[in-house]
């Protein structure tokens, strides 16, 4: 039995220890927002947060997640999801949309750690996520916008 927390909910699951976190959350927990794209940590479609880092769930064995806290696109905290989703909507980023959960989960770590990212920061944070529709320009714009929204949201909540 492996104990893990997903989006704040605790689970105790009987799983093979080498089963990647991706398939645990998709096939066992039914959370399909996190996507399969390559299975070998090349594309970033499977990005989720584990103890606050943007891990590639397709290569992370569930044994490593034992006792840890996983957050998926469905459970991203509002202080990050709100500015990102607002920005993604405003810029109309997605085309096919398949990679966007992973893009947003990666971007969330960026704007958390670097509230005002430069274009170079965006390259450094986001080059691990492939978008086959090539929405990269809009992702870049949306991250800049999200960082502005996040700081104004933070200011508002401080008032």
């Amino acid at each position: 039995m492996i104990k893990l927390t997903v989006n704040g909910k605790s689970y105790e699951l009987d799983l093979p220890s080498d089963m990647p976190v991706l398939w645990v959350i998709r096939d066992r927990l039914g959370l399909t927002g996190t996507k399969y794209g390559c299975g070998v940590a090349q594309c970033g479609a499977c990005t989720v947060h584990m103890d606050g880092e943007a891990i590639r769930s397709c290569v992370t064995p569930v044994s490593r997640a034992a006792g840890k806290s996983i957050v998926t696109i469905e459970g991203l905290e509002p202080s990050l999801s709100k500015p990102l989703q607002e920005a993604w909507t405003e810029i109309d980023v997605p085309q096919c949309g398949y990679c966007q959960s992973g893009q947003i989960m990666a971007a969330a770590i960026l704007i958390r750690d670097q509230p005002q990212p430069t274009d170079n920061d965006i390259d450094n944070a986001m080059a691990g996520n492939i978008c086959r529709c090539c929405t990269y320009l809009r992702i870049r714009q949306a991250i800049h916008l999200a960082s502005r929204l996040k700081s104004s949201n933070a200011m508002l909540s401080a008032i």
Binding site: R26, G30, L31, T32, G33, T34, K35, Y36, T72, I73, E74, S81, L84, Q85, W88, T89, D92, V93, P94, G97, Y98, Q100, S101, I104
Partner: peptide, 20 residues
Amino acid sequence: KRLDTPDKINGKAIFGIDVQ
């Protein structure tokens, strides 16, 4: 604005691989 954006940024959009 695209009508499909909201569901494509919160994990709700269902693609073939998501059918359960």
